[in-house]
Structures are given as structure tokens and as C-alpha cells.
């Protein structure tokens, strides 16, 4: 919590103002699998201390985009630069070495392992040499506790199996891990899908904390409400192509929601629905709730339950 407050001041006013190069920039990126054109001509920018949201319905190409950024698949056409340098990844390890950490929705953790073992999995610190080379258990435990604390997660026991944590907490541990291991760009794949309102708020808060720590964040979601709470830039995908790209100051939540649901199609749908229900309620309301089909509780203006002054939206 203290960290969120402290970094807020330095985080908001256009960080690292002297370097114009974005951390990650995609320009006109395309990807085909055989004759299926999964992604066509998509561009986006990720800056340090900012959150770029990628919005789209199912099948819009969000997962293809994430796979390209994370290095699981190379792109076919277009440019992919990291801090101004052209790259083409052929494995997730390469992307990881360049500071791009991806947190997948399901792949984040090994449920039966304790939190501290999960935290250091794949990058375990050791001490001693030869046959006595062993895990530095004390340091691993302490570091896990501190790193989580810095993100505002205060675990009672880092020895508990991570599967006993809630879905939101697990996402947060995965985010804290990426931050601790020096990621420059954090790619989050639907971190709030399948979470309740309260838990979503918690995850968004840690996403904002990562941003305030100076990371560039790519937030993939199909929930415009969550995106608008924390996002600085919005890229909308539709059927594999980019259907819009906005800065936060250029668009309202309603505008974003409408555009995501596909402006004219939505008008048509609203029209149809109001005809079937003669006593059509407020048009605006119907539009909003229809536009976010996968949101269980569509109007969630304040999902962070224990709201404190340093909430994400105040920085916008």
C-alpha cells in the first residue's frame, strides 16, 4: 500500500519522458496458421508506466496477439520492436530474457507446491558448490514474503500450497513474481476472467501497482469496464483485425463499450430487443449490459472493495 502511494507521484506524469521509444511496439503485425488469417495488420504500443489494454470478443485474435508478444509464435509480417530494436522471437525464453513476462490465466502456477517454491520456480537461487549446491531456502522464503508484501499481498504462510489460495491471489503471486524477476513488460492474459467482482478488483489493483513500479503492461481482456479502470491505451480487435485504437483521454467508457460490441450492430440489436419488449426500458442501459456479454455484473464502477486514496482510477 505504501508503495502504491509513494510511486504514484513519480508514476503519473509521463514517465521516462526523454526516451520516445516505446518498450514494445507492434506495427502492422499479421499472423496466419495455414490458410487461416488469425491476425491482420495490428499495431500497438506499450510504454513504461502505462497500461495498454487489448479488447476483443472470443475469436478476435487476442490469444494470437499474446502468443506473438510472448514469443510462443513468430509473426509473419509487420514489425515487432522492443525499445526500438527489431526482434523476432522463436521461444518464450527469448522474450523472457528481453524482459517480457507473460502471466497466463491457467498456466501461472503449480497448485500443490508451496508459494515460495512456485515463486522461484525455474530461477531458484542456490548456495554451496558441487554436490552440496542446494536451494537457499531461508532466502527464498524471506524474499517471497517481501516481494509479495511490496505488491501489497501479506501472506500468512509462504509454505502453504499455492492451490489453497484464491484465483485472484494466485494471479497476484504470478504478477509479483514477474515484477521481482525484473520484467520490463508484463503481459496479462485475461487476468480477471472467471473471477468475482471483489477478486477482479484485487487483481486490477496489483496490475496498477506493477504499472506504478514502472513496468509497461499489456492487459488482454474482454471486459471494457475493467479495461477502462486501469488502461491508458485501448486497442480493439475484431475478427483478427484492429477495429480501433484510442488513448484514454479520447474515449469514454460508454464509447469503448459500444465500440467493442460493434457500434452499428449494437444499435440494430438494441432496436430488435426494444421491439420485442414493447415497454423498452432505458436504451442506454440495455446497450451497456448487452455490450459486455461475458460480464456477470456489468455495472461495476467500483470493483475495489477496500477503496483507498491510491486507487488505480485516480491516476488516470
Amino acid at each position: 500500500m505504501i508503495t502504491v502511494d509513494g510511486n504514484d507521484a513519480s508514476g503519473t506524469p509521463g514517465p521516462s519522458g526523454d526516451t520516445p521509444d516505446p518498450l514494445v511496439a507492434l506495427t502492422g503485425v499479421s499472423k496466419s496458421y495455414g490458410n487461416v488469417r488469425a491476425l491482420r495488420d495490428v499495431s500497438l504500443e506499450v510504454h513504461a508506466g502505462e497500461i495498454t489494454c487489448v479488447l476483443g470478443d472470443n475469436g478476435a485474435g487476442k490469444s494470437t496477439l499474446i502468443k506473438i508478444i510472448a514469443g510462443l509464435h513468430p509473426h509473419d509480417a509487420g514489425g515487432y520492436t522492443i525499445e526500438g530494436e527489431q526482434v523476432r522471437h522463436s521461444s518464450p525464453r527469448q522474450a523472457l530474457d528481453r524482459g517480457i513476462a507473460t502471466v497466463y490465466q491457467d498456466l501461472a502456477v503449480v497448485p500443490l507446491m508451496p508459494v515460495w517454491r512456485n515463486f522461484f520456480l525455474g530461477s531458484e537461487p542456490t548456495r554451496g558448490r558441487g554436490p552440496l549446491r542446494r536451494l537457499d531456502v531461508a532466502q527464498m522464503r524471506a524474499t517471497t514474503h517481501q516481494a509479495l508484501l511490496r505488491m501489497g499481498i501479506d501472506l500468512r504462510d509462504v509454505d502453504q500450497a499455492i492451490g489453497t489460495l484464491s484465483g485472484g491471489e494466485r494471479q497476484c503471486v504470478a504478477i509479483a513474481r514477474a515484477v521481482h524477476f525484473g520484467a520490463k513488460v508484463l503481459v496479462l492474459d485475461e487476468p480477471t476472467a472467471a473471477l468475482g467482482v471483489k477478486q477482479s478488483g484485487m487483481v486490477l489493483k496489483y496490475v496498477a501497482a506493477a504499472r506504478d513500479a514502472g513496468l509497461g503492461v499489456v492487459l488482454i481482456t474482454h471486459n471494457p469496464h475493467h479495461a477502462y479502470l486501469v488502461g491508458d491505451r485501448f486497442v480493439l480487435l475484431k475478427r483478427g483485425a484492429m477495429s480501433g485504437s484510442h488513448l484514454k483521454e479520447d474515449i469514454t467508457l460508454d464509447g469503448l463499450t459500444r465500440e467493442m460490441a460493434g457500434g452499428s450492430e449494437l444499435d440494430e440489436l438494441t432496436h430488435e430487443l426494444s421491439r420485442s419488449r414493447k415497454t423498452g426500458t432505458m436504451d442506454g442501459d440495455a446497450a451497456t449490459s448487452d455490450a459486455a456479454p461475458a460480464t456477470p455484473a456489468p455495472a461495476a464502477p467500483e470493483p475495489t472493495p477496500h477503496a483507498d486514496p491510491a486507487d488505480p482510477e485516480t491516476t488516470a
Binding site: 518464450p92 503449480v110 497448485p111 520456480l121
Partner: peptide, 21 residues
Amino acid sequence: TRAGNWIFAAGGNADAARAVG
């Protein structure tokens, strides 16, 4: 040891283990 951590991870969730290297 690191190998031990990897054994638990390989059996517990191989995909997650691979994703973190």
C-alpha cells in the same frame, strides 16, 4: 535442490513449469 523443485513442478503442472523455463 533445483532438480527437486523441477521434479515437483514437472508432475504438478508441466505446462506452467515449461512456461517459467
